[in-house]
Design a protein around this nucleic acid. Structure first.
Lengths: 351, 351
DNA sequence: AGGTACCGTGGGAGCGCTCCCACCGGTGAT
DNA sequence: ATCACCGGTGGGAGCGCTCCCACGGTACCT
């Protein structure tokens, strides 16, 4: 019998201690090698590495997490129902960027949906248990309580799309203002004069910035801003349809539409079609996102491209730094933690 | 000063010990309450629950995992690149089923892609570290080494779609054989006589079963099986196009096609169109999966529906049982661990 | 020669929990 | 009254790791 104390509940997996014995060193030294500490002599390191290989040692994550008080995991929190997640290419691109950047590290990515109230409660519990070292927050609305919860729990977080100009969380965003300007300037340069704008959800800061860009591009070009040419949407196809109908009603003589998303543009296109307007002959159309929809639309849609994968990568960068150097909040306050990436206008047949 | 030993690295979160003190009971008792053990008196339970609420106690997952040697997490492993995952509604439905069933429990779901070699190595490492209590395996090909790795590591696993009739892992599948029969019988009942079949990837057992169903449905109806009417595909749209072209070449007089997936049917439809065949007038078309594509096709596609969400739910059921009653392998061998769910033919305009 | 610095190393203490054994007092059988 | 029993409870031991202090040795200074 192996005795009482040697129950070895981990299914016979070797422990640090055993590796140490095998390599003829102490536990601390093995730990140092495993964690890549430089304060180990080459000979010792080699011996330990050999022992690790021979025994097939794999560190016990739970023990490490308990002792070191970290989890080596971060969560990508999507405050939307799964359906939305799969429907919008934005998320999958983001996920790809995040994944690629993270695969360089030992960090594990968790995908968490928080669309329903129930899921949100579950998430709150999850965060309270500190089961992740940091959080990536995408698609957050102005009144979402999640960022504050995160701050209160002192969990490092990075948000894609700041909630306002005064965002306190680290954030990565594309240049919504500049992107909108690009779109409008492009339409103006094509000789369009009555350019309408279907906005996104205005409780999303980025949507507001696009309106700002729209306005100022017109103004800078010497055109007055006609408020009747601005109609609120909500980033959805249905919203695009409703807004387009309202615009046509109010300003039947419009000759261009800048929509705050490709999906919105798709809705607008439908209504324009039904109203007998030809694209781009009668009305030019420009979208935002440069998603697959834009390429497959009939006619192909001119759209403002955001570097979504790049955004995902940058978010991870920021988050990992945030996790690594958890310095006093005061000094962090001063750093540049708001990253803004440039957009690019992709011209196609719709304009 | 709080002294040396009281460093409390967990960010001030209350521990079991503190809850016990507050409730005036021992550590063991609190643990029992937290874990829902029945061997606690009502009065004590109430006292502990009050203390938990007052202190806002949340168990430390790492400590629990270390002491109990379990992780309370399971992985959904997708041996495909992300792209494929997002493109196919199959996966998102599966995820939804799995998620809904799992939300009843404390278990945490991890989504892991293992499309590239690199990702697979990472996964192997991950599994070797026993970072999950069980694994859900979807879309596995006959020669995939993953199931064996899992068996070797003694990690409970459930596979969606057995690799062969002799599958040793627990599995949940839809009735591929029966589904194919439904499709073919339907076409025959509509008076079609030269029914072709575009298969799925034949290294997927389910695809083989569909071929079997196709064959036997014809035979049972008194028709000879014309091998020239069977053309291998691979579940993709491009595969559907190729196969359809080959079939038209070989048997220009075919009057129906049963495709092993909706996506394949979409490819076939294109080629039929280009060849000037009308659907369903000249050629009837039936797909498999009843995905969104089927509903949106022109004309809407008759398709064999698999209860994918239900499959996801059943997989979780099986897996949780497997994890819970880890009895000696011998006795498990005898149990019914292969679940097969019925399919349903959804008739639309294409047939 | 003695002192000081520092590098590489060993191992104690502890992370917060579960598991299990021992113990307590009350109950029913003898 | 005595004893075995049992539901309810407390707490020691241990899970496998990291952190950190202490220690021996070498190199370099004074």
């Amino acid at each position: 019998m192996a005795g009482h104390g040697a129950r070895s509940r981990s299914g016979g997996r070797p422990t640090l201690e055993e590796v140490a014995a095998r390599a003829g060193v102490g536990r601390g030294t093995v730990s140092r090698v495993i964690n890549g500490s430089p304060r180990v002599s080459d000979a010792t390191r080699a011996a330990v590495e050999a022992a690790v290989a021979e025994l097939g040692y794999v560190p016990n994550t739970a023990a490490r997490a308990l002792a070191a008080n970290r989890t080596d995991a971060i969560a990508l929190v999507v405050p939307e129902p799964e359906t939305r997640f799969f429907a919008e290419p934005y998320f999958s691109d983001m996920l790809r960027g995040v994944g690629s950047e993270l695969s360089e590290t030992e960090m594990q990515l968790l995908l968490i949906f928080a669309g329903s109230d129930r899921e949100r409660r579950r998430l709150a519990q999850y965060l309270a248990a500190h089961r992740v070292d940091g959080v990536l927050l995408v698609s957050v609305h102005a009144d979402d309580p999640l960022p504050d919860l995160l701050a209160q729990l002192e969990i490092p977080a990075v948000i894609s799309g700041p909630r306002s100009a005064a965002e306190t969380l680290a954030s990565v965003d594309s240049d919504n203002y500049g992107g909108a300007r690009q779109a409008v300037e492009h339409l103006l340069s094509r000789g369009r004069r009555r350019v309408a704008h279907i906005t996104g959800r205005l409780d999303v800061y980025g949507a507001q910035r696009r309106v700002d860009g729209y306005r100022e591009a017109l103004r800078d070009a010497g055109h007055a801003v006609d408020e009747a040419l601005i109609e609120p949407g909500d980033f959805t196809e249905e919203g695009g349809r409703r807004a387009m109908a309202a615009l046509l009603e109010r300003r039947p003589d419009l000759d261009a539409v800048f929509a705050a998303s490709d999906v919105t543009a798709a809705g607008a296109r439908q209504v324009l079609r039904e109203a007998g307007r030809r694209i781009p002959d009668d009305v030019a159309l420009v979208g935002y996102d440069d998603s697959a929809i834009a390429r497959h639309m009939e006619p192909p849609l001119t759209s403002v491209r955001q570097p979504i994968q790049e955004m995902g990568r940058r978010m991870i960068d920021l988050l990992l730094t945030e996790i690594a150097d958890r310095r006093p909040a005061v000094s962090r306050e001063l750093e540049r933690r708001q990253v803004v990436l440039a957009t690019e206008l992709v011209e196609r047949a719709s304009s």
